[in-house]
Nucleic acid binder design. Structure first.
Lengths: 232, 232
DNA sequence: AATATAGGGTGTATTTCTTACACTATTGCT
DNA sequence: AGCAATAGTGTAAGAAATACACCCTATATT
């Protein structure tokens, strides 16, 4: 094993699946490619990992170059290694995902590499044709967040810092693709005691303004070694 | 991207974390290495992925060559890419795990490659020093099976085809490292209605023989889109 | 000023699940 | 016959999940 290092032609990339939530629907961040293969197609932000950087570092750098987003914590999802996934040969990719507050970012997305024309949010339910196996990667990510959202408070990462209970409920409904009962949802959510009720109300709505809440990370950390379950 | 394929020095391997259960404890399958680096150390079965095979195929081939085990379904766990994980440079590894019936295999483990001296089961609670970052990989695998065992019936993969309820309970206790109440465990497990009670009893024990059960995959598939939860 | 609209906010009864807890039954061995 | 070792069993209390419908309030409209 020492002397002969085989297969030097194997190389690998990292791809980012970034979820956002606005207007009651889940969105994913895509880039329009400016390079072959799949020039002018939409795809996930993703590129080659340098040989002297960790995959965790690479994926951050790539996201920054492709979209201008910085300081996003991404988690590893899965490594895809089908022989046909890349038209130029055996290139495996390590996919990462993250969920983030779309409000804070909006359309302020600025690629800084010629490989990318632009970056844009796309509703999950209306995705364009995607480069490589990227649709497959996105589907696997959704499975992952559905499983994860049942026992950890990742959903809050998708909301603005201050949110109403209805927004929170809509988010869970979007993730699960399923209506929830308002009273039961609120009862359950408030009982977990991980929200901080603010002295503020929604503004700019033409109906009774709802109270605003914050996710209280300190309370959460104290209380939960346990599990949350918001799936029903 | 088309013309310049960078970083041709990147290569990758696949590692196998195989769990077994016997004598009331969880075990993991290790090999004694016969090659540098880490010659004569214990480590996970693992080797380079060929450039013309999928990772899924590679990991099966490697397990066969290192241990003689065949037809084991492994699931991908995580990809490890720290720069220091391999003394010979940037070699990422895709780790897979599986759980299997130790009884059926016992110590009938036959490496067929010179890279490996022998393969052997080791209790999880008394592991030797391990090559590379293999201890870290094993720990991550345990986290994974703990999470997974709560909502899918993977535990049955560790038991013989016919087992007693006490054996099943001991397995959950080993996975959770926690005692469970016998009556509550049985009540809950039988209520899921995924076991088939056999007309057979345990043999060769010097006390009252227990009924044998089988996991009934057909019933399971019918009933569960839902979740199992055996963690309490 | 009155009314319409749109979502905000709330409680209760029923069923199901979880938990805590201790004794009798059966078998093999001596 | 008696012992040792594990199998096997039920109930009561509390907690959690579910199903379900109406009044409240802020704004916009006439």
């Amino acid at each position: 094993m020492q002397s002969n290092l085989p297969h030097l032609q194997s190389i690998f990339t990292a791809d980012c699946v970034i979820f956002g939530f606005s207007e009651g629907e889940l969105k994913v961040l895509l880039i329009e490619r400016n390079e072959y293969p799949f020039k002018e197609w939409w795809g996930l932000p993703g590129f080659f990992v340098e040989h002297n950087e960790t995959i965790d570092d690479a994926v951050k750098r790539i996201l920054l170059e492709h979209t201008g987003l910085k300081g996003i914590y991404m988690e590893q999802l899965y490594t895809f290694g089908d022989l046909q996934r890349h038209p130029q040969g055996r290139i495996i990719t390590v996919a990462y995902y993250a969920m983030l507050r779309l409000e804070a970012i909006g359309n302020n997305l600025k690629p800084s590499t010629d490989y990318v024309r632009k970056a844009q949010w796309h509703p999950l339910n209306h995705l364009p044709d995607l480069a490589f196996d990227h649709r497959n990667i996105i589907e696997k990510s959704i499975d992952k967040i559905r499983r994860k959202v049942s026992h950890s408070p990742i959903a809050f990462e998708l909301l603005p810092e201050k949110f109403t209970l209805t927004q929170l409920q809509q988010l869970y409904e979007a993730i699960w693709d399923k209506k929830l009962d308002k009273r039961n949802f609120r009862k359950k959510m408030l009982k977990y005691n991980i929200l901080k009720e603010l002295d503020e109300k929604q503004k700019g709505v033409s109906y009774r303004a709802a109270k605003l809440y914050k996710f209280d990370k300190r309370k959460y950390n104290k209380i939960f070694k346990n599990e949350l379950n918001f799936s029903k």
